[in-house]
Simulated assay, not measured.
Amino acid sequence: MKSKITIISLSLIIVMYLAFKGFIHILSSSNYKLNSIKSASNTKFIVSEFESLSEAGHAPYGKHLTLSKKPIDTPSEGHIIYAGYCLNLEYSWLSNNRIQVNCRTDKPENPVSLSKTAYGIVVEYN
């Protein structure tokens, strides 16, 4: 009888933990809007453009480019290669190992965060 109560208690704890994790995931993904996705020609990597809808993160209310190996829901699921404020953010794959980022802005502190390389892929910023 005692082991049955222990199993039920552990099961309830696991279910509550998974529900909590799901709730946190829904809250965190609602802080970003996915604007676009571009794959390298060899399809090994994806660049996703997100727009922040909150004041927290790399660039509050800014744009984020995230490099990943699969589609993602939030920038934190991949490697953020760019975060900043752009009036017009453009990016393109120059080759399977080079990405070009162009940002027209009037903010002198731009970019807020920029990776020069990620997963062996060079990021060029203009």
Rank of each mutant, 00 (worst) to 15 (best):
K2M: 06
K2S: 12
S3F: 13
I5A: 15
T6A: 15
T6K: 14
I7P: 01
I8M: 14
I8Y: 13
L12Y: 05
I14T: 14
I14H: 03
V15H: 01
V15K: 06
M16F: 12
Y17I: 13
Y17C: 09
L18T: 06
A19T: 12
A19M: 13
I24A: 09
I26L: 11
S28P: 00
S29T: 13
Y32D: 02
L34S: 11
E49T: 00
F50T: 02
F50S: 04
E51W: 03
S52W: 00
L53R: 14
S54Y: 10
E55T: 12
A59P: 01
P60W: 03
Y61F: 11
G62L: 01
G62A: 02
K63C: 07
K63I: 02
H64R: 07
L65C: 01
L65G: 00
K70Y: 07
K70D: 10
P71C: 02
P71F: 02
G78T: 01
G84R: 01
Y85T: 11
C86G: 05
N88S: 13
N88A: 13
Y91L: 03
S92Q: 13
S92E: 14
W93K: 01
L94R: 12
N97Q: 09
C103Y: 04
C103S: 02
R104H: 12
T105G: 05
E109Y: 10
N110W: 09
S113C: 05
S115A: 12
K116M: 09
I121E: 00
V122H: 11
